[in-house]
Write a protein that binds this DNA or RNA. Structure first.
Lengths: 211, 211
DNA sequence: TAGATTGTTAATCGATTAACAATC
DNA sequence: TAGATTGTTAATCGATTAACAATC
């Protein structure tokens, strides 16, 4: 199968999410590209192309099989290929991420949470005992996590990122409101809340519409 | 000035962020489009076009004035035009959002936090007393917030969104992992962590590189 | 002057949308 | 059959990049 592009991945996730959250669809069985298009707010041609790309074929006058779509998306996105992750930063944000209910559905397994604050060490978040950041390297050797989630203050982000990289992390999901620099081979995805926020506020202030 | 497009807004935020976080630039005074381009990972032509769009002109052989850029971005994005917001949902995520340090810089002022859990009502988060969701409508009448931030569980999201819309909200920033439906006139921005996550995991699993 | 950098137009690339025949 | 929907090609649109003269 061809490599999926970011836009495609995002749309596939949206379709998947909608199908999962509307179990009545499994009963009904099928859904048309037009109906999905309206919900996700894309063109119906786009939907059909996305499905074609992951090998799902529909039936004229009927539509696409909901169950088949879900299975094909899980397969195309490798959602069943679980990978391990650790969270660094057990503050409110770290806790919120650890409790995020969707991780199960997206193949990410949180194996450990670290924090520099010794007062937090030992407390429990989302069923995991917070570990001291001192043990990051030794625990990484044991866990061999692929994904590191950064929810530390901006000032600490670069240092922790460096340590994660040295410890063999393969990807970093950065929630810290700063830029971290990592080697070429490391996959970095920043969650830039400020950009999303700026867009929202700009549009409110200009009374301009739609996303 | 022309209406800015989402991509432009995102880039402007990135420039602004970088300039703000590197105060040595104010000392040095100027920065070239090429240098900024490398940092934000866009083309240098893009940077120059973005600056042209907000009325910032550079000097050949020297670059752009850092201070001037910052001021122009603040003005273009209306960051100094503060608007009021409320948060519904005082869980870990709501608390993390309330404590987000960048709000000050992006013109959003959190005026109140609501929660349905009476045990949380009265506790303090980021300097604000958590209010009962029962008082949402009466408080909205007083505060007249433009932006509502949804950090409630998925099941509650639609109901709260409806109440916010009836209470006169103008924009919703939705962190709940579900789709909410709002009238055309309401600006809705979803923070789809699952899409970002799926992209990250997909790339790790396929060993494909870079964003 | 020489050379680095801007400013801007033209070219390319990719994503989105329109059109429409094929299908059940 | 008629009509709704798919599948796919062509057209459009917008965003990105290349090229290069203008400038200090």
């Amino acid at each position: 199968m061809n490599k999926l592009r970011p836009g495609q991945i995002r749309r596939l996730v949206m379709y998947y999410h909608y199908l999962r959250d509307n179990p009545d669809l499994s009963t009904r069985g099928s859904i048309s590209s037009g109906e999905l298009a309206d919900i996700i707010d894309v063109d119906d041609t786009q939907v059909r192309k996305d499905f074609a790309a992951i090998g799902v074929r529909g039936q004229p006058r009927i539509g696409f099989d909901a169950k088949e779509i879900s299975i094909a998306i899980r397969s195309a996105l490798h959602l069943d290929h679980v990978c391990d992750a650790i969270i660094v930063g057990a503050g409110r944000l770290g806790g919120a991420i650890a409790s995020y209910p969707d991780f199960n559905h997206y193949g990410l397994k949180i194996k450990a949470i670290f924090d520099a604050d010794e007062k937090k060490v030992g407390t429990r978040i989302a069923g995991l005992k917070v570990n001291s950041i001192i043990n990051l390297e030794s625990e990484m050797k044991r866990i061999q996590a692929m994904v590191g989630i950064l929810s530390v203050p901006a000032v600490a982000a670069q240092e922790i990122a460096d340590r994660l990289v040295r410890a063999g992390i393969r990807a970093i999901w950065n929630f810290a409101p700063t830029q971290v620099i990592v080697p070429e081979r490391i996959r970095l995805v920043n969650v830039h809340l400020s950009a999303s926020l700026a867009e929202l506020c700009y549009c409110v202030r200009c009374k301009c519409k739609g996303e």
